[in-house]
Amino acid sequence: MMTINVVLVMIIGFAGGVAVGSGFVAFLAVLGIIPRLTQLTKTMKMIHYYEAAVILGALAGAIATLWNPVLFFTPFLLIPLGLAAGIFVGMLAAALTEVLNVFPILAKRIGVDGKIAILLMAFVFGKVIGSLFQWIYFVNR
C-alpha cells in the first residue's frame, strides 16, 4: 500500500511539473520576448543557450521556493538582481501591451501618429512611478 502511495504521489508530482513547465514555456513563446532580445542583440545563433538559460532559471526558482536555502550574501547583490527582474517584467508588460493592440487604435483616434513615442513614455513612466509608489509608500500601510 505504501509503495503504491509513493508511486502515485511521484506520478502526480511529475505530471504537475510537466504541465506547469510546458505552460511556462508556451507563455514565454507567446509573448515573444526571447525572439525580440535576439533580434535586438543580433544573436540568433545563440538561441539554444537562451533556452538553457530559461530552463536553468526556472529550476533555480523551483529550488529557491521549495528548499528555502539561505546564502548569506551581501545585500548589494540584490541591486543587479532587482534590475534584471525589473527589466524582464518590464518586457513582459510591454509585450502584453502590444498584444492588446491599444496603441494603434488610440493613436488613430486622437490623431497623433507622430507622437506615439510620447504616449509610450506615459506608459513607461506610469509603470515606474506606480511601482516606486507601491514599494515606498503603499505597502505596509
Binding site: 532587482g82 527582474a85 515606474v128
Partner: peptide, 21 residues
C-alpha cells in the same frame, strides 16, 4: 521593505519596456 531590491526593480521595469519598444 527591501528597497535595495525594489528600487532597481522599478527602474528596470521602465528599462525593459524601452528595450522592448
Amino acid at each position: 521593505k527591501p528597497l535595495i531590491f525594489q528600487i532597481p526593480y522599478s527602474i528596470g521595469l521602465g528599462l525593459g519596456m524601452i528595450i522592448f519598444f
